[in-house]
């Protein structure tokens, strides 16, 4: 059961993240701590164990499904948001448009310069 083995890796790193946050009081999620620790561990080993890949790949592919139960919640709080609608929709729409343009423009400038070096 390589995938089960890999899942235990992932769960252990998440729990280690919980421990780190409990003692350090860092304002980040245990998933992020676990992700960074996992990346650091893999860099030390120098390869991805196949059991880990067997668990990590399907989980990453399922990310979209795992957020669905939360996403659906927004349809049930529509009433509570009455009156704030314009602000929310406008900020998401314009904010995303502006930030997409800024990101692409910045990267184009920065990568252009590094190529010239």
């Amino acid at each position: 059961m390589p995938a089960l083995n890999g899942l235990l890796w992932l769960i252990s790193y998440w729990l280690i993240g919980e421990v780190v946050i409990h003692f350090s009081g860092l304002p980040i999620s245990s998933g992020v701590v676990g992700m960074l620790l996992l990346c650091a561990t893999l860099a030390m080993i120098g390869r991805v164990p196949s059991s880990l890949a067997a668990a990590a790949q399907p989980l990453i592919a399922l990310l979209a499904m795992l957020i669905m139960p939360g996403v659906v919640g927004v349809f049930f709080i529509l009433d509570e948001l009455a009156g704030q609608w314009l602000a929310i929709v406008a900020s998401l729409l314009l904010g995303t448009l502006l930030s997409v343009f800024t990101t692409l423009w910045l990267l184009k400038r920065l990568m252009g310069r590094s190529h010239a070096d």
Binding site: L10, G17, V32, M35, L37, L38, C39, L42, L62
Partner: peptide, 20 residues
Amino acid sequence: LTVLLGPATVALGMPLYQQL
């Protein structure tokens, strides 16, 4: 299902390592 979001986040450490 949503409890799996924890290990799924940790799993993102793998592509991160592969792209180092």
